[in-house]
């Protein structure tokens, strides 16, 4: 469904992604693992074309989207959930969701606010509160719900478990499995191997912007040296 072929991305002159290749198949949850600064966020931004790869290709649903403006990428069905959440703090929850609303695409689920409130009951209670009045966990829910309003076919989640309470992490894992059950494909960037293991079918490990491992968790368990070298366990 999604494929990165030999992408090289830069911030100014800093070369961050190095001939990175990876792919995500429809209906699966793939976890993108790596240490701080490994290049996970950059990978996700390169997929969204918020950082345009200098060379290489990103294809989605068999179309080369490299160099497209991000809003077109989003309209193709890629839903981006940023690491820093970036909710609109002056807007209410309902207004935040409105910003994310996009017409349904064929083949994707059509999310309504009611469906999202079912998954995230906290948001329902506080629907008229402004973004800045929400807790970290609530903000994390909101940012996912907001992206789902765009009815994405593939969800890009950048470290959703970062900085939130363990209870909510569990809830988050449930949510992701729930989404998968509903047919949403997910690419999730993580540092937390435990969390990744619960939600994902496959692990992709990167370090310094290069691919180091791509396989199932069973394969990964068979190679403890990889875990030691590229993950902070």
């Amino acid at each position: 469904m999604l494929e990165c072929k030999n992408i090289n991305s830069f911030y100014g002159k800093a070369h961050i992604l190095n001939d990175l290749c990876m792919s995500v198949d429809a209906g699966t949850v793939v976890s993108l693992l790596g240490r701080n600064g490994a290049g996970k966020t950059t990978t996700i931004k390169s997929i969204m074309q918020m950082v345009v790869p200098k060379t290489g290709q990103v294809t989605f649903l068999d179309r080369d989207i490299t160099g497209w403006p991000p809003h077109k990428v989003a309209r193709m069905g890629l839903g981006y959930v940023p690491e820093e959440r970036r909710i609109f703090t002056d807007l209410t929850i309902l207004e935040n969701l409105e910003v994310g609303r996009q017409p349904a695409r064929d083949g994707s689920i059509e999310w309504t606010i009611e469906m999202l409130f079912e998954i995230f009951p906290n948001l329902k209670e506080r629907r008229n509160n402004r973004g800045k009045e929400l807790s970290g966990g609530e903000q994390q829910m909101l940012t996912i719900a907001r992206t789902l309003m765009g009815n994405p076919k593939l969800l890009l989640l950048d470290e959703p478990s970062e900085g939130i309470a363990p209870v909510i992490v569990e809830q988050m894992a449930e949510t992701i499995l729930n989404l998968k059950a509903q047919g949403v494909t997910v690419l999730i960037s993580e540092q937390n191997l435990h969390f990744a293991r619960i939600v994902a079918d496959r692990a992709v490990i990167i370090e310094s912007g290069s691919l180091k491992f791509d396989g199932t968790f069973l394969d990964l368990d068979a190679q403890p040296e990889i875990q030691g070298a590229y993950l902070s366990v």
């Binding site: 918020m50 809003h71 989003a74 309209r75 609109f88 002056d90 807007l91 910003v99 996009q102």
Partner: peptide
């Protein structure tokens, strides 16, 4: 209005608005 909501969202973070599929240009 929706346009107003988008405008206010763009006031704070236009890149994010774009990433949500809105042609902010």
């Amino acid at each position: 209005t929706r346009v107003g909501i988008l405008v206010r969202a763009a006031t704070q973070d236009r890149e994010m608005v774009g990433a949500l599929g809105v042609n902010q240009a």
